[in-house]
Computed example of a mutant assay.
Amino acid sequence: MLIGTILRGKGSGVTTVTPDATVRELLAQLAEHNIGAVVVSADGATIDGIVSERDVVRRLHDRGAAILDEPVSSIMTVEVRTVGPGDRVDELRKTMTQHRFRHMPVTENGRLVGIVSIGDVVKSAIEELETEKASLVDYLHR
């Protein structure tokens, strides 16, 4: 299965925040959209970074509650790995597991076109297994 197949099913909407948004504003976005990470983007199309709940928790532990009024740019991950719509989900699953990522932005021609979570990847694996099972059951009943 390809990443683009996941995006067709879930949609290509991506919640973003600007680098100068406060961590408090970031938390409001995470809560409002019930998500675990957002892409940091000054223009909504290019990627400046990514920030997750884990990033917030780690910085709270390191620096205290003062980070809530700091800009997102002070806690975001700057080196962001991305995938394309034509990349394979099984390769993404390996990368996410190996590097302990839970969210991966999807880009095409340098532009943000979606985001895939580990939940999306697991859901696609289950769907593939169910399809294979149905095919095997059908084959056995012929």
Rank of each mutant, 00 (worst) to 15 (best):
R8C: 07
V14Q: 07
L129E: 10
K123F: 08
A45S: 13
V80A: 05
S73C: 02
G36N: 01
D43N: 15
P105F: 06
I118W: 01
R63E: 14
A125C: 09
R93N: 10
G119I: 04
E108P: 05
A134P: 04
R58D: 08
V116I: 12
M96L: 12
L68E: 01
S117G: 08
L129S: 11
L27N: 11
V83C: 13
S74G: 02
A66I: 08
R24K: 15
K133M: 11
V113S: 04
S52F: 02
A125S: 13
I118D: 04
E91H: 08
E79V: 14
M1S: 15
T5N: 12
I3N: 04
L60T: 08
V80C: 09
E70F: 03
R63G: 08
T5Y: 08
A65D: 03
T95N: 04
T16D: 05
A28Y: 09
H33M: 05
G36E: 05
T97S: 14
P105N: 04
S117V: 02
L140E: 08
R63F: 08
L129N: 11
R142L: 12
N109F: 04
G4W: 03
V83L: 06
L92V: 13
H141F: 05
I118S: 12
V23F: 02
S52H: 01
T46A: 14
T131S: 15
V72S: 01
V39N: 02
L26E: 07
D20V: 08
H33F: 15
N109L: 09
Y139S: 13
L140G: 08
D48C: 09
I126A: 14
R59C: 01
S41T: 06
R111E: 11
E53F: 04
E91Q: 14
L7N: 08
V51D: 05
D120C: 07
A134G: 03
D20S: 14
H61I: 05
M104T: 07
I35W: 06
L140C: 12
T97W: 03
I75Q: 02
I75P: 02
E128N: 10
L30T: 03
T46P: 03
A37W: 00
T15P: 00
L7F: 10
L60C: 06
R111I: 00
D48G: 07
A134M: 12
R58Q: 12
V72E: 00
S135I: 11
R8V: 05
R111P: 10
T15S: 04
R59H: 12
D138A: 15
L136T: 03
V80T: 06
V57N: 08
V122K: 02
H33Q: 13
V56A: 11
L136N: 04
R93H: 10
I67S: 04
D87Y: 07
D90N: 10
T82L: 07
S74Y: 03
I118Q: 07
L92P: 10
I50Q: 01
S74A: 14
N34I: 00
L27F: 11
G11E: 07
S124V: 09
K133P: 00
A125H: 10
V137C: 09
